[in-house]
Design a protein around this nucleic acid. Structure first.
Lengths: 242, 242
DNA sequence: TATCTTATTGTCTCAATGACCACAAGCCAA
DNA sequence: TTGGCTTGTGGTCATTGAGACAATAAGATA
């Protein structure tokens, strides 16, 4: 049955909510994580009998006195322990029948992070939390599969048009690391020499004049992303394209 | 005081709404119109004493049994008489204090149309409806100025990456009309043969097998935008670029 | 030294772009 | 009727960038 204290969608009918949340309006977070060159998404396992065994996006109800993004951060941390990341609004989903028994509109937020940099802690109302491979998603509640599909489409588009991938790498990285990142997100193979030329011609990377350490082969040059150059270029009409 | 029948934000405190709408959740439409090479936006003048003289985006409350976009279409037509256009979701705005006295989150939809193709009819709860120049906006209620600013930024980006410009033309148009449109929006000159080839190669236009009428020179072929082809191409990873 | 792995450079082909030319079609005025 | 005007449509050509792939360089290791 419904549980007043849970911030997840773990309720049936009728909606039985604390007085300080906005009814009919929820948040769902899509946290994409790159884990060993594989793209995953952060999901929580449901506890209530109604959805036993099913998984869901970490989300829940918005309080009357909190801004949308603040709610997204709070809910994400409460359910998964994940914090210190940048959530961006994705889209609002409100199909009449997306939620059983009640009309609930949900605002989706998303982020792209490096999975190994975060430790997961399942919240009270979550049976489990884990990174799940995008290519083998478990059974999801409501329209969460649809939301994830939309998020994937958006992510693949963004990654080609904004240099968001650089966030996933350490400050100093090799060109092959960068390439592996794009190959994982775009789920494709890229030609090494061509990728290198394309990136270098953008003038967004500054060489560190250092080489990789401790690799059993020729060490690659290290580069760092020059965000100032990027700011400057975008103002001049430059558009990032991969 | 509040007015039960109005779908606009013409209420003070407390919210007094018909039972069949979702409380704390509204729609606002940004309808951008190109009017003689000037960009304008469709606004409605408020009737209630609280906001007398101020203008607002056409919007209002969502019914329990209608999808978000359907609500956007209904509200737009009820308030302005404008219909038969394509509304796309822009962003959801939910700052805690964006609305006085109550927490109201609003979902913004937007469209880009040719202003002269639409006749405006002020709805019951609107004192006036008109196209207002983007560069000289009147005083707006709540955070509508902020929403418009965001919409403008988004529009300028979208025009280059999505074929939204086609909406500004009649159903059947010549390639030169299309070119003139982009030259106006992008404020640049384009080469006629090259523009023609670029557009035609996208396979987004279907020839009407008709020619222009009543022009004092050789008549150009008429084309129409093939939205089905566009849908199909985007799914195959095609990206529109001008 | 031979060999392995990865880094980096070079080269070739092809497609797309942009600048520009040429002709076609239709109207109009002499 | 004819030549001139405007706009539509097709062509050429040089340049550029992407992609496929070969070749060489730099370490590390056995």
């Amino acid at each position: 049955m419904s549980n007043i204290t849970t911030p997840t969608h773990s309720h049936v009918e009728p909606l039985n909510l604390p007085q300080d949340v906005i009814k009919a309006l929820s948040i769902d977070n899509l946290v994409f994580g790159l884990d060993n060159d594989e793209l995953k998404i952060l999901l929580v396992k449901q506890t209530d009998p109604m959805h036993q065994g099913k998984w869901a996006l970490p989300g829940g109800w918005i309080r009357y006195d909190e801004n949308l993004r603040d709610a997204a951060y709070r809910l994400l941390e409460e359910l998964t322990g994940v914090k210190q990341l940048y959530l961006e609004q994705l889209k609002t989903f409100g199909r009449v029948d997306r939620f059983p028994t009640e009309r609930v509109v949900t605002i989706a937020y998303y982020a792209l992070v490096s999975a190994e940099h975060y430790s997961l802690v399942a919240g009270q109302s979550a049976a489990d939390v884990s990174w799940q491979s995008i290519n083998a998603l478990p059974e999801l509640i409501y329209d969460h599969a649809e939301i994830i599909a939309h998020g994937m489409k958006f992510l693949r588009h963004q990654v080609c048009h904004q240099p968001i991938g650089f966030n996933l790498l350490p400050e100093k990285f090799t060109l092959l690391q960068l390439q592996a990142l794009y190959e994982a997100i775009l789920d494709t193979k890229l030609d090494k020499p061509n990728f290198r030329r394309k990136i270098m011609k953008m003038n967004l990377l500054t060489p560190c004049n250092e080489k990789q350490q401790g690799v059993p082969h020729r060490a690659a040059n290290l580069y760092r992303f020059d965000s100032d150059a990027y700011e400057h270029l975008t103002e001049s009409g430059f558009s990032f394209e991969i």
